[in-house]
Amino acid sequence: MLRSGIYATYRGTEYELTVDMDNNVKIMTDDKGKIDSTFEDTYNSGLYTKKVKPNELEDCVRIVPYGIIQGEKVQILKEKENQYQVATGSLLVGSYLNLPRVDRDTWVGWVSKNKIKLIEEKTPVNPENL
């Protein structure tokens, strides 16, 4: 599963983080196995959230995924089944992958996962500063 965003561990379980308009830190998941009665599905969308205190979080990191194709770095935008949607500013990579050109310096398209080495760039984040 492609991870992108801010993640942290809360009581031994990893969750994605978000901050609401009132600057409340919330953990979120769509996995019912990770929730209890303190989580809520505000919009009945299947996404459960819980307000937490920043000091309750451990191992807080920002994850930015990217891929390496033939030694070139590409941005990974989305994932579906056996493909990643990638973007590049390189004419050589865009041409090699036969990606559609979407503007002057950008090529975007779907590429088989077996052509890409997925890398997650992780940067520590202080949850007090979200």
Rank of each mutant, 00 (worst) to 15 (best):
L118M: 06
V74H: 08
L77R: 14
G109T: 05
K78Y: 15
L77Y: 07
K113T: 02
S95F: 07
Y96L: 08
P100A: 01
I76K: 05
G67I: 08
V108D: 00
D105A: 09
L97M: 04
L118D: 01
T88E: 04
E81H: 11
L92T: 11
L77P: 01
R104Q: 09
A87L: 04
N98G: 02
I68C: 03
S112R: 14
T106V: 09
L97W: 03
V86G: 04
L97E: 03
I116D: 00
V93Y: 09
K78P: 02
E81Y: 13
Q85Y: 03
R101P: 02
Q70E: 14
E79C: 06
Y84L: 01
Q85G: 03
E120Y: 15
I68L: 15
G89V: 05
R101I: 02
Q70M: 14
V102Y: 04
Q75P: 00
I69N: 00
D105W: 11
G109E: 06
K78S: 10
T106M: 10
G94A: 07
K78W: 09
N82A: 12
N114C: 08
E72C: 08
E72D: 12
K80Q: 12
L91S: 11
L77A: 01
L97D: 00
R101S: 06
E121H: 07
Q70P: 00
E72K: 14
K115H: 13
P65V: 08
K80I: 09
V86W: 10
V93I: 14
V86K: 08
P100H: 04
T106N: 12
K117R: 14
G67H: 13
L92A: 12
N82R: 11
T106E: 09
I68H: 09
K117S: 12
Q70W: 14
A87E: 13
K80N: 10
Q75I: 13
Q85I: 02
Y66S: 03
S95I: 06
N82L: 10
K115N: 11
V74D: 04
E121I: 01
V74A: 05
E79P: 05
G89R: 13
G71P: 10
K78D: 10
V86F: 08
Y84H: 03
L91N: 13
R101H: 06
V108K: 14
A87M: 15
I68P: 08
L99T: 00
E121V: 03
T88F: 08
I69T: 06
L99Q: 01
K73Y: 07
E120W: 12
P65Q: 06
N82D: 15
R104V: 12
P100R: 06
